[in-house]
Write a protein that binds this DNA or RNA. Structure first.
Lengths: 249, 249
DNA sequence: CGACAATTTGACTCAAGTCAACTAGGGTGG
DNA sequence: CCACCCTAGTTGACTTGAGTCAAATTGTCG
């Protein structure tokens, strides 16, 4: 269906419906919206232009006025400690929503940056908020999204506070794997979207430790890794190593 | 351990207004609700009977059907790792809302238990959700609460992933202090509501480390501590030690 | 083809954990 | 009211997993 309003905010090629044809619509916001209401959602979503590795979606301190959905590629959220170090808060893969943390204070507490070529949809909050009052299922979905993020963050707190380096790495690999599988991709063989440094930063480890653990896991035959290409040979062993099984977000 | 569940429904003859006269109404949910609408909110809130130390508000796995507000005392949220260990997720003090994490999955991912004699209000979610569509400011407030929790959890992730034992303890003490101050109480002299063990569990440290750090801080003249009674002698030094200043929730 | 960035590997260090012994409170029953 | 017991807290001695520093190797991209 041709969208008659080529709104100014719809940057780019937005003649065809956005969500309806998106391969992620069964993961993303649209799952909460009945088909006949999808148009309302489409209208407020901006497809952004593609981002390149290192491009910011927003920076820490920017005014909060939208949340974002990943269409392709991977995005990381990070904040900066008072000591000036980066702390990675999360990795966001296609179909996932990010940027929710800024709602309460009106400004984003963390920045978001593309790890590789990526595309994200921008969902202006002051448009989706009133819409969510019209569409109860959308409101519920927004609550669910935020609650899910709380749950995931708490899983990560547990990881950071109790797990060993090996358990942390195993958990991260399993998380990535299951998130790929959910999109119908292989969870056994994939390319890491982030550097060793980013993995370590996220998991509370230094690069050297990440490297050593990966090498050890390879020597044990649990996985094969060269550069960023991973193959999980023994998923069960990896799951055992991870301790608590990390449910995919 | 006896689980004295919260009262089922409005156990009380709820003729007297609950929120309106509550000393915390400028911290809690009511801040989002105009005076003329307060009645609507009052109607759906259950005051529970008092909890004793060790009583559960809910357990991990319980169906999610409400969120809770602390009226008095302190409550901790915790989950159990696959290894069977407890992991404390947060401490909740008067005026604070907890139990939001269970919304997405329909069951509480963590349990909540009173650390001392406490009273909590129960806010049934399937009643406040529709109400929040009538009262935009209430909806916004709920979004804010969840967003705030996300932000706080991310602060804690940062703490767990980057801070030293001393920085962690200093951060916790400052957090408790500022939350007391917000209620008009002394932030300089107070009683810790939790054991050394709970502090350590929350901060990713063992009891011995907590004890040693507290002793060291006392020897340095930063604070005075005996048992659970704390006096912060040099707030600025403590803040410097904490690194990133922990904003009160 | 360089030059720089990312990764790996080794040797050494140290902050925090473990194990163990001892002390201080706090609550209860006789 | 006191004696006793049990749990919480402290302190010391020793261990260790992960960090630091350094140097070699590989990968990437202009």
């Amino acid at each position: 269906m041709e969208s008659s309003r080529l709104a100014t905010k719809n940057v780019g090629h937005s003649f065809q419906p956005q969500c309806e044809s998106c391969s992620l619509n069964n993961l993303c916001l649209p799952i909460a919206v009945a088909n006949e209401d999808l148009g309302l959602l489409e209208e407020i979503i901006d497809r952004g232009r593609p981002l390149h590795r290192g491009d910011h979606v927003f920076r820490a301190g920017d005014a909060f006025d939208a949340v974002y959905a990943v269409r392709s590629g991977t995005v990381k959220s990070y904040s900066i400690t008072t000591a000036g170090e980066e702390q990675i808060i999360g990795f966001h893969m296609p179909g996932e929503i990010f940027g929710l943390g800024g709602l309460s204070s009106g400004q984003h507490p963390s920045g978001a940056i593309a790890l590789e070529t990526a595309a994200v949809c921008r969902i202006p909050f002051d448009e989706i908020e009133p819409l969510s009052r019209q569409l109860p299922s959308l409101q519920r979905h927004l609550f669910h999204l935020m609650s899910r993020e709380i749950q995931e963050d708490q899983q990560l707190m547990l990881l950071l506070s109790k797990k060993t380096a090996e358990e942390r790495i195993a958990s991260l690999l399993l998380s990535l794997s299951s998130r790929l599988r959910r999109r119908g991709l292989s969870g056994a063989r994939f390319r890491l979207p982030m550097s060793r440094g980013d993995m370590g930063n996220y998991l509370g480890l230094v690069v050297e430790t990440v490297s050593r653990v990966l090498t050890r896991l390879q020597n044990n035959g649990v996985l094969k890794i060269q550069g960023r290409e991973v193959e999980i040979l023994e998923p069960q062993t990896l799951a055992d190593l991870a301790g608590t099984h990390w449910q995919a977000p």
